[in-house]
């Protein structure tokens, strides 16, 4: 009997408290200038640039930023699509160029030609309509353990060499954006007719094809294999925090594939002015921190970066793909890839 009553009271209390909280928070946000930002989890975490940038922005502009994060940008985008007009977000941050097509189709975003775009290289502006504004980018590359007993490969074809048997960690393009990046890289270089041959050959040398970057890089740092697909900027972390130059990003002459992260303002937003201020902020003052935290390059070419970035080599040739082209073919590519890998 007693427990019965206690449970009921607990539940009633919880419900009423949450209702109260909801009511009070809604009224609070109506009073001050504020924007709601949807982004991926790492941004909002202490480690991300969120907690240092956000207070800075709030101080400078007096605009409060309400950060809402989920697992990744795809989730946030899907969520915004479902929420439709009642979506509380003013901005969505973190949509990469290969997911852009869905973003375009959703019609959620409005154009904003930010003045800061002046300092952004044209090749990064993958959306001519400026709905999705690039704020950082990464270049995929193989990272090599200089303390291992295998020589550093010099080009994609080198990876087919039997000396690398069980020495390479690849990532599955069906479950990871990094894996997808590698897939697109091979399509860039070998074309749609040849990329599968590369995969078939290099698969023989692969220790494993991991489900995501975290496991792949984890295996790499635990010494399971000396070569892993990652970013050119990966060494930056080790230099910055570990004083270690052991892990080196390799530049291949045939060029590398690039991934661009963007931020977009929602059409349905009631605070477009404030949102634009935030975009400008991210593209200027927020560049260095964002880039470092995400282990990427800043879109704004005028950004000052720490010395550690010297260990993030920039390739001569960089590829990117038209988002609509990606959207149209991705199902077929991944299906073909699966077929080729299984047989």
């Amino acid at each position: 009997m007693k427990r019965h009553i206690i449970t009921t009271i607990m539940l009633v209390l919880l419900c009423s408290v949450s209702l109260f909280a909801q009511a009070s928070s809604e009224s609070a946000s109506a009073e001050e200038r504020s924007i709601t930002l949807y982004c991926y989890d790492t941004f909002s975490s202490e480690w991300g640039s969120g907690p240092t940038l956000i207070p800075l922005f709030e101080e400078e502009t007096g605009i409060k930023v309400n950060v809402v994060s989920g697992g990744d940008a795809v989730e946030m985008l899907s969520r915004a699509i479902i929420e439709g007009d009642s979506c509380p977000a003013d901005l969505i941050m973190g949509i990469s160029d290969d997911q852009a097509s869905t973003a375009y189709e959703s019609g959620l975003f409005t154009s904003y030609d930010s003045p800061a775009l002046e300092y952004v290289d044209d090749s990064l502006e993958f959306d001519p309509q400026h709905r999705l504004i690039p704020f950082d980018y990464g270049v995929f590359a193989f990272v090599w353990d200089s303390e291992s007993d295998v020589p550093a490969p010099t080009c994609l074809d080198d990876l087919k060499d039997p000396v690398y048997k069980d020495k390479i960690i690849l990532i599955d393009p069906r479950t990871s954006s990094v894996g997808l990046g590698l897939l697109m890289w091979t399509i860039d270089v070998y074309g749609e007719d040849g990329y599968l041959d590369w995969w078939k050959a290099v698969k023989e040398n692969a220790l494993t094809i991991a489900d995501g970057w975290s496991s792949a890089y984890g295996l790499f740092t635990e010494g399971e294999a000396p070569i892993v697909i990652s970013y050119t900027t990966s060494p930056v972390y080790h230099v910055l925090w570990e004083d270690s130059t052991r892990y080196q990003a390799l530049i291949f002459p045939e060029g590398h594939h690039m991934t661009i992260e963007s931020i977009g303002i929602l059409e349905s937003s009631d605070n477009k002015e404030e949102a634009e201020a935030f975009v400008d902020f991210i593209l200027t003052e927020g560049q260095a921190e964002t880039a470092i935290a995400n282990s990427m390059y800043p879109a704004n070419s005028q950004t000052e970066l720490p010395d550690a970035y010297e260990w993030a080599p920039m390739p001569d040739r960089v590829f990117s793909m038209d988002p609509d082209y990606v959207a149209a073919n991705i199902d077929r590519w991944t299906a073909e890839w699966t077929e080729a890998m299984i047989n």
């Binding site: 220790l207 494993t208 489900d211 299984i342």
Partner: peptide, 20 residues
């Protein structure tokens, strides 16, 4: 170690998060 060991969950994830 490789995609020959693919399950239904992987396919669901691929379809939802990669192919969107």
């Amino acid at each position: 170690g490789g995609p020959e060991y693919t399950t239904l969950e992987v396919e669901i994830y691929r379809t939802n998060n990669i192919v969107l």
